[in-house]
Amino acid sequence: MFGAAGIRIAWGLMLALAALAVGCMILGSDRMQQADAAFRDAWIKHQTTYLLADELRQSSDDLTRLARIHVPTGDAAREAQDMAILAIRNRLRHRRTIPGPWRDFHRHRGARPRNAAGSGNGDRGQG
């Protein structure tokens, strides 16, 4: 019906279509990897922004709380805490390197909390 020439043409077309399909799969895979990397970068930026906004909210809450305590009492330790938080927010001091809010600044009588390992030196990072 087709003859030898027709069969060769049919095999050639199938081979060309298969090569085109493989090329499209390779290109699609590359595009998917690029999209996945862009999504991961966006997710990391989103999480970082969320954590920074939460720290800013917490420091604002801390400043408000400490100011409400300092004004009626005139406690100098509370004023020092306010100034420490403001120095961090104004980039005059380094922010702590561990995640979490700034609420565990100096507590009663200026004592610093123990670190997570419990070594007792009270140093929880910079700041």
Rank of each mutant, 00 (worst) to 15 (best):
Q126S: 05
M1K: 03
D82Y: 08
T64Y: 05
P101C: 11
R40L: 13
S119G: 08
F39R: 15
A42E: 04
A117F: 01
A42T: 06
A111T: 00
D54E: 12
H106T: 11
P99S: 03
L63S: 05
I85S: 04
M83Q: 12
L63E: 02
D36P: 03
R107H: 09
G127Y: 12
R124L: 07
T97E: 05
R96W: 01
T73V: 05
P72I: 07
R8S: 11
G110T: 00
H106N: 06
W102E: 06
G122V: 00
A21L: 09
L15T: 04
A80T: 13
A116Q: 06
R124F: 03
I44P: 00
F2I: 07
D123E: 02
I26A: 14
G12R: 02
R31N: 09
I7G: 00
L56C: 03
E79M: 15
L20R: 06
H94P: 03
A16M: 07
R89V: 04
S60T: 14
V71I: 13
N115W: 01
R95E: 14
D104L: 05
M32E: 15
I85M: 10
R103K: 12
R89N: 12
D30H: 15
L92F: 03
A5C: 01
S60Q: 07
A35P: 06
H94T: 07
A111D: 04
A84G: 03
D123S: 03
H108L: 12
L51K: 12
N90Y: 10
T49P: 00
N90P: 00
A4S: 14
S59N: 08
N121H: 08
A53Q: 14
P113T: 00
L86T: 15
W43T: 12
F105P: 01
Q126G: 02
T73A: 04
Q81E: 09
P113R: 06
D62W: 01
G100F: 08
V22Q: 11
